[in-house]
């Protein structure tokens, strides 16, 4: 049984001109694991999460979580699901300990267990002495940790994380992603993490669901994503055309991309040695060799990307 499944899920927010169509007949099945939900801002990610929690009723269609229908069993779903919303939702006058323990009881945990779990979970997300101070004085990174802690405190079977790295600096982003990955891999909690940054999803997820304009773009394992779009960018200060020609001659799909860049496909074997040899034999200065970055844009303009590499391979 899939962890999450939706059938023709549609949500239209009322408004002028027919309102806003946030989800458009979305049908998807999601298996346990760490799953990334990618889409640009406004793609319908948050709407989907809120429907899965039973917080929002769909206009039409059905959804089930943990085998329970969201319309009929919202309460039972929410007991076993942790939700980290995107926006700031923390009262500033409570301490992290008081807030998280209170919310643990709201999830049905007895008082003493709620206190114990709160101490465990706050330590787990990396809040130590600060947890006895009012949240009003916390940095954005600490607030995000509190939000993650309240989602974990009742030991959910599924975590729904909405943009968990929102507003974090690079170091904080790394730590949060690390926490998310540990939560999914070491504690056996299924995770659905929303992001508009495919780079983040790549680092933590093993499955990706991409949505755009409320419709399913693709649902596939991360490996299949990178397998298909795997491209190296090679930058040289001159002679890009020569390098491309040498690489094609050596049997690699390569194509000139501007005067100083060559794109090399990595389908068959890794072309690093060939690039090095070609550059050395031609006496070219290699500036950088890096995998092409996967961004949401790439995913949504996939045809362009694929056509580029396939074109050279032909």
């Amino acid at each position: 049984m899939p962890l999450i499944s939706t059938q023709n899920l549609t949500k239209r927010y009322p408004g002028p001109g027919g309102g806003v169509l946030a989800l458009d007949a979305l049908s998807v099945e999601i298996e346990p694991g760490i799953v990334g939900l990618v889409g640009a801002n406004g793609a319908g990610k948050s709407t989907l999460l809120r429907i899965l929690l039973g917080l929002l009723a769909p206009t039409s269609g059905r959804a089930s979580v943990l085998g329970l229908d969201t319309a009929a069993n919202g309460g039972r779903i929410r007991e076993r699901v942790g939700y980290m919303p995107e926006h700031d939702v923390l009262p500033s006058d409570l301490t992290a300990t008081d807030l998280v323990a209170h919310l643990a009881e709201m999830s049905g945990l007895p008082r003493i267990a709620a206190r114990e779990r709160t101490a465990d979970v706050l330590r787990h997300v990396g809040l130590f002495e600060e947890r006895y101070r009012p949240i009003g004085g916390y940095s954005t990174g600490m607030r995000q940790r509190v939000k993650l802690a309240q989602a974990l405190v009742h030991d959910p079977r599924l975590l729904l994380l909405d943009e968990p790295t929102n507003g974090l600096d690079p170091a904080g982003r790394d730590e949060m992603l690390d926490l998310v990955r540990r939560t999914g891999t070491e504690f056996g909690i299924a995770v659905l993490v929303c992001s508009h940054l495919l780079g983040e999803i790549e680092r933590v997820c093993d499955h990706v669901v991409a949505i755009d304009g409320g419709r399913l773009l693709r649902s596939a394992s991360l490996a299949s994503f990178t397998g298909r779009t795997g491209t190296l960018i090679v930058e040289v200060d001159e002679g890009a055309a020569d390098l491309a020609a040498d690489l094609v001659a050596a049997g690699f799909p390569a194509r000139v991309d501007g005067p100083r860049r060559v794109l090399v496909g990595t389908h068959a074997e890794l072309p690093y040695d060939a690039i090095r040899d070609a550059a050395a034999s031609r006496g070219l200065a290699l500036i950088r060799v890096e995998p092409a970055r996967h961004r949401v844009e790439d995913l949504f303009r996939d045809d362009v990307h694929e056509e580029g590499v396939r074109g050279t391979a032909a």
Binding site: L53, L55, G75, R78, E79, V81, Y83, P85, H87, D88, V89, L90, P91, S92, L99, L103, M106, S107, G108, Q150, H154
Partner: peptide, 12 residues
């Protein structure tokens, strides 16, 4: 404080 979101995503 928008903490209602956290209440309503629970058993309550």
């Amino acid at each position: 404080s928008h903490v209602l979101t956290l209440y309503f995503s629970r058993a309550l």
